[in-house]
Nucleic acid binder design. Sequence first.
DNA 1: CTGCATCCCTGGAGATACTG
DNA 2: CAGTATCTCCAGGGATGCAG
Lengths: 140, 140
Amino acid sequence: MSPTHTDVPMAPAELDPCGMPDHPDCGIRDVLDRVGDKWSVLVVVELASGPRRFGELQRAVDGISQRMLTLTVRRLERDGLVTRTVYPTVPAQVDYRLTDTGASLTHLVKALADWSLRHREAIAASRHLYDQTHPDHDIR
Amino acid sequence: MSPTHTDVPMAPAELDPCGMPDHPDCGIRDVLDRVGDKWSVLVVVELASGPRRFGELQRAVDGISQRMLTLTVRRLERDGLVTRTVYPTVPAQVDYRLTDTGASLTHLVKALADWSLRHREAIAASRHLYDQTHPDHDIR
DNA sequence: CTGCATCCCTGGAGATACTG
DNA sequence: CAGTATCTCCAGGGATGCAG
C-alpha cells in the first residue's frame, strides 16, 4: 500500500467503550487528539479571525512547516472543523475557514486560554519551586 | 550529563511572546501540553473522583505503563496540579490528589468532554464522508 | 501558489529487570 | 508498593526537491 507521508493519520483506534460513569472520556480523546495537537490549535485560533489562504496560514502560525500545515488542515477538514475551498485560478488558490463546528471549538480554546492565563503564574512558580526542591531531577 | 529516562521533560522553550491580541496563545501551550497529553487527562479525570494511590491510578487508567504514569504525575506535580504525599509506612505508600488548580482544570476537561459528546457524531460522519470522497488518500 | 514525495533523525513511549 | 534504570522501536516532524 505504501501510504505516503502526507496522508491523513487520524485516530488509529477507539479505545474507550464509553460506558462507565467514572470514566467520562467517552469521546474526549477524539477532541483531544485535535485540541491537544499544537498545530491544530494554532491553526484554529488563526482561522477564528477569519478565512485564510494556505500561505497566510503558514505565515501566521509561524514555525509550522508546509507538510505539517497540510496535514493539520487535512485532519481538520476531515473532521469537518474547517472547509477547504479551491479556486481554479491560474496560480492555484485555496482558502480555509472554520465550519460552525470548528467555530464552536474556538470557544473552548478561548476557555483554555483563559484558564492558562489565570494560572500561568502559579504554574510557573510551581515549576520553579519544584526545580529547586528537586535539583536531583536534572532536567534539560 | 546523561539525564535518566524518568526525569521530567517539560516545556523546552517558551515560543509565544504573549503580546499580539490576534494571537491569544499567550499561555495556551503550557496548558495544552498538559491537557493535550493523553495520559495527563486520563489521570486528572481519575483524580477528579478523589485521591488515588500509585497502583490505583495505574489500574484505573488502564493501559498506562509505570514509567508513563510516573512521568505524568511528576509533570502534574511540577505544575502544581496534583500533590504527592508519601507515607513512610513499611511498604511505601503514596497518594496523589488534585490541587485547587488541578481541580479547576477538571471543569475544562468536562467542557471538552461535553463538546466532544455533542459533536462526536458529526465528526464521525464527516470523517466517514471524507474517507469516501477521498479514497485516494489511502488511509490504513 | 499549493501541495505531494523522500530522506532522515530525534524524542516519546513500551517492555523488562532491578531496588528502597 | 512505588518507583528507577536501560534498551529498543517507531511514528512525528523538519528539510528539501519536484509537480499541478
